[in-house]
Design a protein around this nucleic acid. Structure first.
Lengths: 146, 146
DNA sequence: TTGAAATAGTTGCATAACTAACTATATGCC
DNA sequence: GGCATATAGTTAGTTATGCAACTATTTCAA
């Protein structure tokens, strides 16, 4: 490979999820150690429902940046775990509203706590300013590719 | 959710692969448009073999940050595509050396070109300094969780 | 030298992702 | 009203990831 190739691109290997999957893996491990049988992906759906309950699947696609089949199956699994429930919308029967069950609501406090602890572990030695740079870069990268 | 919760943690949703998967998805699309039938994950393995051919599977695990089953299966698929070949190491028969075939070698130039174009698209409006911050933050995050 | 421990790799099972093709319901124009 | 089109969601098939349990080979120490 020519040496002048892929200079900026070494960011690819960085951006491409090494740190991200390390964070996800640690959070998953912390869930497991706490006896919680949910995946980080399921958690990320619940996270948006805790902010606003009874979203449509399409809205969950938008907010979690997932496609429709992915959300269908995540909701399937969350429903099997009795953490959410699909409710057909009266005014438009194409739409499923995804609503938290009591069990789903009860997970919020404990898992947010674990997520905070995980992020604190991950971000040791990282300043607020650096975090802002990362967020801003990622927003631009995302917008560039949308 | 208490409002003071998860303040730093909004980085979670950022770090958690939204920008990263957007990049990967675009690269995958660019491969497909160019008529290349490989996944970005397969490409990331080839990438390390182009730098240094005939690595052991364990070494590929280290360099790509994947676990052994993942590498086993990626190599299975790359072998099925006739892009690499497993060669038992003479001095230590536990070890498979993964070596590029001619077809595998020939993919290098074109795909690196596509990867560069993809990264240039992704990084429009992002400065060298910002890239360095992101890389440095991600390195620290990774080290914190290792 | 032989048997325990370490190392390299594989397999089985579950979850998740993407694409493409599909069903069902709603909208809107003629 | 009726049909084309758009929108919401599901299903099928392939690939990838994580974990746990497994086989094969090597190392090392009693």
């Amino acid at each position: 490979m020519p040496n002048n190739q892929f200079k900026r691109g070494e960011l690819y290997s960085v951006i491409n999820s090494v740190a991200a999957t390390a964070v996800a893996r640690r959070l998953q491990k912390n869930f497991r150690n706490a006896g919680l049988d949910i995946t980080v992906e399921q958690w990320s759906v619940l996270y948006h429902l805790w902010k606003e309950d009874c979203l449509s699947q399409q809205e969950l696609c938008n907010r979690t940046f997932r496609d429709k089949p992915s959300i269908t199956r995540l909701i399937d699994n969350l429903e099997r775990l009795s953490l959410v429930q699909r409710v057909a919308k009266k005014e438009d029967r194409r739409i499923n509203l995804v609503c938290l069950t009591d069990a789903g609501k009860q997970l919020q406090e404990m898992t947010i706590q674990l997520a905070n602890e995980t992020m604190n572990e991950a971000l040791i030695g990282v300043s607020k300013e650096e975090i802002e740079v990362v967020k801003s870069v990622f927003q631009r990268v995302y917008d560039n590719l949308i």
